[in-house]
Write a protein that binds this DNA or RNA. Sequence first.
RNA 1: GGCCCCAUCGUCCAGCCUGGUCCAGGACGCGACCCUUUCAAGGUCGAGACACGGGUUCGAAUCCCGUUGGGGUCACCA
Length: 590
Amino acid sequence: MSPPTSPTPHTAPNTPHPAPLVTRFAPSPTGHLHVGGARTALFCWAFAQAQGGRFMIRIEDTDQARSSDESARGILEDLAWLGILWNDGPTLTTPLGAIGAQSRPVGPYFQAQRLGLYNQYLEALVRAGRAYPAFESAQEIDVLRQAAVAAKKTFRYPRPADVVPGVFPAQRWSRAQAGEPHVVRFVAPSAEVVVNDQILGPVRFAPGEMDDFVVRKTDGFPTYHFAVVVDDELMGVTHVLRAQEHLINTPRHVALQQAMTRLDTGARFATPVYGHMPLIFNMDGTKMSKRDKAKAARKAAKDALTKNPALNAGTLAAATGLAETAVSAFLNAESDDVNTAEAVARHFKVGLPEIEVYDFRASGYLPEAITNFLALLGWSPGMKDAAGKDVEKFDMAFLAKHFSIDRIGKKPAQFDRTKLLSFNADAIKALPDAVFAQRLVTWAAEFNPAFAAQLAALPEAARTRLLAVIKPRCRTLGDAPGVCAFAMVSDQALAFDPTAMDKAVRTDAGRAVLRAFATALPGLNPTEPAAVDAWVKAHAEAGGMKMGEVAQPVRIALTGGTVSPPLGDVVAVLGTASSLARVERCLAQA
RNA sequence: GGCCCCAUCGUCCAGCCUGGUCCAGGACGCGACCCUUUCAAGGUCGAGACACGGGUUCGAAUCCCGUUGGGGUCACCA
């Protein structure tokens, strides 16, 4: 090993890796799976698939304060829902089988369970004179940092004079062993570090840029940098694809790798192949984050407060059942609490932007639409279809076959919800009717139980026809309840839109059409939608009317409004008796 | 501010590596029209970009340099 002060540049060599190729996605379980994380996981998965390698999940729960098991499970479930399945990692039992059950024996896959390992490697690093206990408190460091900022200088932790690279810091070690609170810092190399990034090309970091960063915190847990390097080595990770925000961290990881040897084989740590992909932003250019939900809800609340001076934090708290202190903190942007945001949004009936995979799931997006769309954020197949157009619609199997690092772009992408919505609408349209019905029922059972119950209450034939008819009218599964509403309300509870009634029904012509329809209805076969449509056409021709003059009064009578699926289908779903009852009732109000 | 990354239609992507076939192609959105019993769906057409300035070259969206702009990161978070 070259001494740390060597002028020899530290490089991350792009050496070919023998099989198996291993990629990993390593989320920290501090919330739901973010769409950005989902894309990272997708790319890691796709690359491993395309290369015949393995895709691994590791849970980075070294932040004791913020990590939770529920979050870890939620992230795994979201990944599974998206169809991003892992070869190695925690086992997740699903109706389709246990994911991760065939993992390589390199676990545990939760970092909090690997503390012993980190400590062994840490002690070896200290004994090699490449790390040392440091006893300044976080507060003391903070003072130094503030001073540096005030002086407009970059703060770098000054290495204590008694620390000599390559020499075991015996005194510091015994103080630490005696129980004195401390962190452990890495002796940063003074040479240049070059990262041969597979997406960005070689990235050079000048000597002296890196300071002696912390590798173990006061609480005894390793920092992200240390845990990642140890685990990637011990778990055989060969390729690291991650977001560009990690690019700056990479020299630290490379430096660590070059300072460390395996305890079992004595081999030097390998440096994996790195690729840093561009970030994903909102359409306004800001970083997508959970805070966007709070921002949206706050805006809705402020708008309402402006319009209605009687409203304030107190009345809002009463209306939403929240604590007044929580509401005012939220309104003053002192808190971005998600629960508060959601309660406020519900109160003002505004939708919150989907940020996490779970949000999109709840809104009725299809996993295949999300993964397709996400894949295009930073990657493209660069292929033309038979018509000579760019290929942009593809499934997971296509990705698994064609994904490659060299087609990952470099520039950050903005998350265009409108385009995602279009992809989702297309994905729904592509579903066979039976599959659509099954997906909708599954979705409703989880996210809209009331609608699920209404669907279940429908006769099977009517439900089948209804769902087939609404399919092209749904851009998300969440659109379905609205489109289906006419069929879910009882004949007696159906409300006729007053404006529509005045315009098309409360006229001599309108009433006459409804009477004629009521007369004809019992003779029309309800299972044959074409019969109703034919009647509309014939009646219009016979009366010298436009089709709309006949169809709209009937539509209003049957559905309460001017917008609905085709009349034949509406009658087919409602049945003759119900249709007749609605027409009679409408006539009574005309 | 230091360090690092990036730069083609409003947005996502193709083209750039291997300069000419590019007065730049596809998709979403937008506009118009067609279809049509409403709403969707479907079809046709259209508007819409190589950030700027220097080079190199017979020739640059493509190569080089600079400027400007955008972003990331500067934690005992990951």
